[in-house]
Design a protein around this nucleic acid. Structure first.
Lengths: 146, 146
DNA sequence: TCATTTATGCAATAGTGTTGCAAATATAAT
DNA sequence: ATTATATTTGCAACACTATTGCATAAATGA
């Protein structure tokens, strides 16, 4: 099944590098899934990945995503209403998921953008020792505004 | 089944008031679910509610929670790792869910606290019009620190 | 090329959430 | 209090999401 896809060879090199750096074995399936994730600027759902895979094995996909999440290749975004999406991590989060970033959901197109913001706000909360923060934001994206 | 539970009558009066103010019909089932939520200081999962209900109907519980969420009685908290919890809303969010609050998950005890913070940080994100924000914070809570 | 480790694909199963419908209950009006 | 109406409940069935065990296949390192 995997031979069907057209690979952009330059991307493949990068993706192999990503997997190697995280000690994940290089397999066709993983490269295809990584490729799909890399082609999207916004976070995508399991369903979208399944559609783009076409002929595939759901169980292997679940295991692939699980591995990617554990090894810091991908992170999971949960939004109200049982919305679960996936996005590639940026280089920052090698071993652990150390995102201090923002997930923006557009109320109009429903796309979820994973945005890095330069100055992450600091919050001082008496009684709690905060190690890490994430922000979920809701509103309208550029495309839908114009 | 519902007669089994012991109600604190003074709480019942408050809970009936909550339901009435949101135009939700008063039923035993809803009062019991509300009671369970009110007794917890931290957010609780569907599973926890099911356990505390004991003898109950799963479908009715799902519908009850759905109604509570729609009418602004309860809000849903989503955390990494497929963690989904529920917590009572405070009085602020009558019709729509206008929480500008923070969800804190303790890495040690895993409890999720729903905290209102006085000065909610503002984020300016070029290309996005932000209407509403939520913060997810991770760290250690008071109990686990001492 | 071979030995070892890890990944894949299939079957079965568990968990999570929804829909349709008849009976039961809550509310509002009499 | 009683009735009429609208809503909720509980059951059965079902759809979707995710996991486990195991034999086969493939990837890595020697």
């Amino acid at each position: 099944m995997l031979q069907k896809r057209n690979f952009f060879c330059n991307f493949v090199a990068e993706m192999i590098e990503i997997l190697k750096s995280r000690n994940i074995r290089i397999t066709d399936f993983r490269l295809v899934v990584l490729d799909i994730l890399a082609r999207h600027k916004t976070a995508i759902s399991m369903e979208q990945i399944e559609e783009e895979l076409g002929d595939f094995d759901r169980i292997t996909l679940y295991r692939t995503i699980k591995t990617f999440i554990e090894k810091g290749v991908v992170h999971e975004i949960l939004m109200p209403g049982n919305v679960k999406k996936l996005a590639l991590c940026d280089d920052g989060c090698q071993d652990e998921h150390h995102h201090e970033h923002l997930h923006f959901q557009c109320n109009s197109c429903n796309e979820i953008y994973c945005v890095d913001i330069p100055r992450f706000p600091k919050v001082n909360l008496p009684g709690f020792k905060i190690d890490r923060m994430e922000i979920q934001a809701f509103g309208t994206c550029q495309q839908c505004l114009s």
